[in-house]
């Protein structure tokens, strides 16, 4: 046996050299995140080491089951019922969608009892993100488009409903350099390829901020001190044992009436690198459960989003 091993040793070493060489070459060729124009979904979420990030669906819609709530822009305020609960005015300025009465005192029960701007009337959830400024002028967004799907690799029938009142934050509001991974990123139209800063967009596919929330829950807490610890992202379709419950992967795409060049953007939270967004679940539980069972468990397309009704088509 030993003789046999020795006989193959040179080949094994040669193979190792080739493999390692290729890996080294690949590393050398890969641009660091800060220089990468396009962050691709194939990037491992473990690269960050400290800040978990999602694996995303990057193909065109129509391939995996999904439902969509389109929620028109509702209002703006320096409030944050997750991070600064009961402290009005303490937050940077946020744009709100979905539940119409969201403020610093909002509870999920209050949101559920109120009206919504969403096309799915069972969706009383609150969605928000820091206000975008262009040359220091407020950019009033058009809408938040909320996609609900099983995360890539997740068995659709494993997905359970969000617990009522679940709070989640996607993206890192403290980032002063490009965020690792793709919890938050900018794009044009329905293009799934994200960049860490806004890029120039065509008229037919205006600027969007995409935020992908955590899809694994600890099964116990609807919030946590840092608003992160109770949820995390799946990897290759698996949730870690600390967060064993699969919940829908929510991606919100914030649509802005912005295209072309010559812009100078910042967010209320700072540089556009600091993109992040919040979700406070106040869906009518039966309505949410039904959409999950019909659209995610059965893996069908219940809604599509495209550019067929985009204003820019007529420009």
């Amino acid at each position: 046996m030993a003789g046999t091993d020795q006989k193959f040793l040179p080949a094994v070493i040669a193979l190792a050299v080739i493999v390692l060489g290729a890996a080294a070459a690949a590393i050398a060729l890969s641009p660091p995140a800060s220089e990468s124009a396009h962050l691709h979904a194939s990037r491992s979420p473990s690269l960050s080491g400290e800040y978990p990030t999602p694996e995303r669906h990057t193909g065109p819609q129509g391939r995996v089951g999904q439902f969509i709530a389109k929620c028109a822009y509702s209002h703006s305020a320096p409030d944050d019922p997750i991070v600064h609960y009961q402290h009005p005015g303490r937050s940077h300025r946020h744009d709100f969608y979905g539940a119409v009465a969201t403020n610093a005192f909002s509870t999920p029960e209050q949101l559920l009892a109120g009206e919504t701007t969403c096309t799915k009337t069972a969706d009383k959830a609150a969605y928000w993100q820091p206000t975008l400024y262009d040359h220091d002028e407020i950019v009033e967004p058009v809408e938040a488009i909320a996609y609900y799907r099983a995360a890539p690799g997740v068995t659709p029938t494993d997905v359970q409903s969000f617990p009522f009142g679940l709070a989640m934050i996607a993206g890192d509001q403290t980032a002063t350099s490009p965020q690792v991974g793709e919890a938050a990123g900018w794009t044009c139209g329905i293009d799934p390829i994200l960049t860490p800063m806004p890029r120039d967009c065509a008229d037919q596919s205006p600027l969007h901020l995409n935020l992908t929330f955590q899809d694994c829950w600890d099964g116990v807490h609807i919030d946590s001190d840092d608003h992160q610890a109770h949820v995390t992202y799946s990897t290759a379709g698996e949730c870690p044992s600390s967060h064993p419950v699969h919940i829908p992967q929510l991606t919100t795409a914030i649509k802005y009436p912005i295209s072309g060049s010559g812009h100078d953007f910042r967010l209320a939270s700072g540089h556009t690198y600091s993109a992040h967004g919040d979700f406070l679940n106040a869906w009518e539980p039966e309505g949410l459960e039904r959409e999950i069972q019909i659209c995610i468990h059965r893996n069908v397309v219940c809604n599509l989003n495209n550019n067929k009704d985009d204003d820019a088509l007529l420009q």
Binding site: P60, Q61, G62, R63, I190, L304, N306, N307, K308
Partner: peptide
């Protein structure tokens, strides 16, 4: 009657 093509959906 308007059959149409586009890469905004599949097939």
């Amino acid at each position: 009657i308007v059959p149409n093509s586009g890469a905004y959906e599949l097939c």
